[in-house]
Design a protein around this nucleic acid. Structure first.
Lengths: 187, 187
DNA sequence: CCATAACATGAACCTGAACTCCGGTTCCGG
DNA sequence: CCGGAACCGGAGTTCAGGTTCATGTTATGG
């Protein structure tokens, strides 16, 4: 998926990038409602070209989401490098949410019912989850998180916060409240 | 809005109810994607009849959501009657969420971007909020909730829980965690 | 029981947005 | 510099689903 190989003419590759960029931008800002013609125009291309690169709208959307997940994984990877377990955890959590905030398409993809055919994304998702697992475990071992905290709770927390990304910065308040319920009892 | 008056033929009133019931059922289960023809069929009526009673699909949706909000308000009213402040709070919280759980349309209406033209619903929403305000305040005064808890936090918590209503019962776990962050520190 | 206004019906209509298709254009190895 | 394979453009096609309206049906007061 990533290194698609050499067999792609130079202009084709350039256009593919342009499409991805334009679509990212628009999907991020307006979510579901953007239409193919708009994306084409913003990319400075014809609609036909979009369909040369992606089977249908759904496939394009999936590619975008996949891209974002790759970014999330690399974010997680760098957070994992941080020495202090709690700082690592917080960095991951805030980094994840702050990346999600401006991307309505991504948030919606996670909050709405999951589509079928997102098989490829699931793989990336798993990679991300594995890193979260480790960061969480480290925070628990260091005595910063409740011992009964699960990696799956990370998902609950983040979904909760994302649900409150409506215009304002309410989600930060919500996250703070949630963190209180998550920390180890002794402080 | 509620007592629309006498000027409505008996069969018309009956049909209106049938439409509302059918639409509630379908919207609740399948959210946005139901189509007018389906609703008509399930109500045992023709599509034209739907349009006699509701200007368009959006209006029908709004009527349904409004109805649910009325139910929520009456739920809140009865929770408010409970003696013990904490029990009242918990009853309201769980009652609200358990009602929301089977109703995808309602949840989606709250989680998605709010449509315009839902002015009438906002009124009902305000009534609900007023009751929440009182129940929350009582729980704070009784020393069960953090003193810095806001009525608006009720919204954050419930949105968070609703975001985790995906098939399983994850939201209960999430709510438990959230409650830990919400309770008064002294326990 | 009638007259008639209110109501119901659903096939046809219309809209908008995804997708196709083929004539024209561009890249690239030789 | 050339041939042709790969690629692009965007007007036109298709189709799903919301909405209308001419025709038929039913409730209700007198």
């Amino acid at each position: 998926m990533t290194t698609r190989g050499p067999s792609l003419r130079a202009d084709a590759r350039r256009n593919r990038e342009a499409i991805l960029d334009a679509a990212s931008e628009l999907f991020a800002r307006r979510g579901e409602s953007v239409q193919m013609d708009e994306i084409a125009e913003r990319a400075g291309l014809g609609v036909g070209t979009l369909y040369r690169h992606f089977a249908d709208k759904q496939a394009l959307r999936a590619a975008i989401i996949g891209r974002r997940f790759e970014a999330m994984t690399s974010l997680a990877r760098s957070a994992e490098q941080i020495e202090d377990p709690w700082t690592a955890f917080e960095t991951l959590l805030y980094g994840y949410l702050e990346s999600a905030q401006p991307d309505a398409a991504f948030r919606f993809a996670l909050l709405g019912p999951q589509e079928p055919s997102w098989g490829e994304i699931d793989a990336e998702k798993t990679a991300f989850a594995a890193i979260v697992e480790r960061v969480v475990q480290r925070a628990i071992d260091a005595g910063h998180l409740r011992t009964d905290f699960q990696a799956s709770d990370f998902v609950l927390i983040t979904r909760g916060a994302m649900a409150n990304m409506t215009g304002r910065e309410d989600w930060r308040r919500h996250l703070t409240l949630q963190l209180e319920g998550i920390r180890a009892a002794d402080r």
